[in-house]
Amino acid sequence: MATSAESRTRAYRWRMPVAWWLKSTHYTLYMVRELTAVFGALWAILFLAQVPLMKADYAGWLSQMRSPGWVLFSFVSLLFVLYHVWTWFNLMGSVLYIRLGKSPIPGTAINALMFAVWAVASIVIALVVATPILVG
């Protein structure tokens, strides 16, 4: 069909609904994925605010970090950030294209490697921060 200038001016202009992200589960989950960044950043800022107290006002820090609000916010943030972890690493296989010799590393292997490194790193950090085992 010819798309002459005339037919284009008479064409119906489709408009994206503002609530497009509620139209499909994929789109809604995408918005949740993007929202996870808010929790990551906010938690990091609130954590940083505690750091000077750890040295200067130990008792103040104790009561601050033991408040139910902090624990609850950390729990909610953890759920969101775990969703970030899941989506971020599962996309890595599509983003990274690495050819080892003649064949590219399969995307699923890259994803699995990410999760493996994440698990090891998390355990090491937990041992350093929550126990005096690795750093006395």
Partner: peptide, 25 residues
């Protein structure tokens, strides 16, 4: 955010505040 934040949220946001970590830590 993916590699480091979750473990800190768990340890610094929950385990230590709830007394689940050894005090000398």
């Amino acid at each position: 955010a993916a590699f480091l934040l979750p473990v800190h949220m768990l340890v610094n946001g929950m385990l230590i505040p709830l007394g689940a970590a050894p005090q000398e830590a």
